[in-house]
C-alpha cells in the first residue's frame, strides 16, 4: 500500500476524469492521496475534494510564486481553513528563484508567516524549493526548526544539501525526476535513510519513466517506489511499508474522522 503525498488533482486537467483518476489510484494500491494547495482557491478546492472522497486529504498554503497575494486577511483565512481535520499540512510553501514572479523579500515574508502558522497549528510543512536551497535552510534555521516537521518535496539538490536537510530532521521526497535516464538523483536517494523518505508524483507534472511526456497521476507513484527499491536494493514492499508509515506519522493520517 502506497501513500501519494503530493498531488494537484484540482487542476482543470483532471476536470474530465477526476473521479476515474482517483478510483484508478485506489485500484492500483494507493491508500491515501494528499492534495497540495498553491493559493487560497486551491486550498478550498483541496478541502472540498477531501470532503468528497474517503482517503483524500488536503493542505492549505500559498506557493512562493503567489507570495504577493499574502496579507493578514489571507493568513487569517488559511488559519480558519486549517481547522478542518482533513487539512494535514501547510503547503506548498518555500522559495522559488527559477520563476521570476515574485521578489525574494516578498517570498521570504510569506514563507516565514506560514512557518509560524505551522508552528501555531502544529501541522507539518510541505516545502517547495527551486534553486533556493541555501535561502530556505537559512530561514528554517532562523525560525527554529525544532517543533517543526515537514518534507522537501520534489527534491533535486545534491548530497550536501540532502545532508543538511536530514540534519534539520526533515523528510525528502522525489518525483518522476528520479526515474529520468540522465538523472543524478539516484546518487542522492541512496544516502537518504528509509525512515525519511516519502512517495509523491506532483501530478499532473513530472510523469515518471515509462510514462514520461503524458499527464501524470497518483497511480504512477508505484514507479517512484520501484525506482527507490532498485536504488536501495530492497524489495518494493519494504519501500511501500516504510514510506507509508512515514507519511502516516508525519501527517497524522491515522487520526481523522472525529467521531
Amino acid at each position: 500500500m502506497l501513500i501519494e503525498t503530493h498531488a494537484h488533482l484540482y487542476f482543470d486537467r483532471f476536470d474530465e476524469d477526476r473521479d476515474a483518476v482517483i478510483e484508478r489510484a485506489f485500484d492500483r494500491g494507493v491508500l491515501k492521496i494528499i492534495n497540495i494547495a498553491t493559493d487560497l482557491d486551491s486550498s478550498r478546492r483541496c478541502i472540498e475534494l477531501a470532503e468528497q472522497h474517503d482517503g483524500l486529504f488536503a493542505t492549505v498554503g500559498i506557493h512562493p510564486n503567489d507570495a504577493a497575494k499574502m496579507d493578514t486577511a489571507t493568513l487569517d483565512t488559511l488559519r480558519e481553513l486549517s481547522r478542518n481535520p482533513l487539512v494535514v499540512a501547510i503547503g506548498e510553501i518555500g522559495m522559488d528563484f527559477y520563476w521570476d514572479t515574485c521578489p525574494p523579500a516578498v517570498q521570504e515574508q510569506a514563507f516565514r508567516a506560514q512557518i509560524q502558522l505551522a508552528k501555531e497549528t502544529g501541522l507539518p510543512i510541505v516545502i517547495h524549493n527551486r534553486e533556493a536551497a541555501s535561502e530556505i535552510l537559512r530561514i528554517l534555521k532562523s525560525e527554529g526548526a525544532d517543533g517543526l516537521a515537514g518534507v522537501f518535496h520534489c527534491f533535486s539538490e545534491d548530497r550536501k544539501v540532502a545532508q543538511e536537510v536530514l540534519e534539520l530532521g526533515f523528510h525528502i521526497s522525489f518525483t518522476g525526476n528520479l526515474t529520468f535516464k540522465k538523472s543524478q538523483l539516484p546518487g542522492v536517494a541512496d544516502m537518504i535513510p528509509l525512515d525519511r523518505l516519502l512517495l509523491e508524483t506532483d501530478c499532473p507534472f513530472l510523469s515518471p519513466e515509462p510514462r514520461r511526456g503524458r499527464r501524470n497521476e497518483p497511480a504512477h507513484v508505484i514507479y517512484i517506489a520501484e525506482k527507490l527499491a532498485e536504488i536501495k536494493g530492497v524489495p518494493v514492499s519494504d519501500i511501500a511499508e516504510t514510506t507509508t508509515a512515514n507519511a502516516v506519522r508525519l501527517f497524522g493520517l491515522g487520526e481523522q474522522g472525529t467521531v
Partner: peptide, 13 residues
C-alpha cells in the same frame, strides 16, 4: 463548507 463535517460530528456526539 470547510467546517461542515466537524460540525456534523460534533452534533452526532
Amino acid at each position: 463548507y470547510h467546517i461542515t463535517s466537524p460540525v456534523i460530528f460534533k452534533v452526532l456526539e
